[in-house]
Nucleic acid binder design. Structure first.
Length: 128
DNA sequence: CTCCTGACTCAGC
DNA sequence: GGCTGAGCCAGGA
């Protein structure tokens, strides 16, 4: 297990050379799709993985079309930094997101992922 | 073309 | 210790 060594990492300009001009959205989609089942991540983590943790908003915004793109993006595995299901209201039904997570073995309490810290999946460590 | 909002996060008060 | 403001990028009116 790796400790949280990502304290003040330098903002490395992650420029996927070779890849096409993938917009922030597509990058977010790709990362979100890499989330293993039974694991969750935060918007900031994805944003930070892309190099811009300040654009965490865009991550959430990108999720706006998560269920529209193909393959479908497991946006329900993406929560805010506190582990709270901030986007549950955008799944059509507020209980849908929680149900999906519980189906994967993730316990949800008070709209928050239990042991979120433990189930937290770091895209930066997993992909790189 | 311009303005604003939006599923976040950090820093400041 | 809680709330507010500012920053990010992209899409919609």
């Amino acid at each position: 297990m790796k400790k949280k060594a990502i304290k003040k990492e330098k903002l490395k300009t992650v420029r996927p050379s070779g890849k096409k001009e993938e917009s922030f959205f597509e990058l977010v989609y790709e990362v979100a799709r890499q989330i293993p089942k039974g694991r969750v991540t935060s918007y900031g983590a994805i944003a930070a993985c892309l190099g811009t943790r300040l654009s965490a908003r865009m991550v959430g915004w990108a999720m706006n079309g998560a269920g529209k793109v193909k393959p479908k993006v497991p946006a329900h595995r993406v929560v805010n930094r506190n582990g709270m299901l901030s986007g549950k209201h955008h799944f059509g039904e507020p209980d849908l997101m929680q149900r999906l997570l519980e189906k994967e073995g993730i316990k949800i309490e008070d709209d928050t992922v239990v042991e979120f810290k433990k189930l937290f999946w770091d895209p930066g460590a997993a992909l790189f």
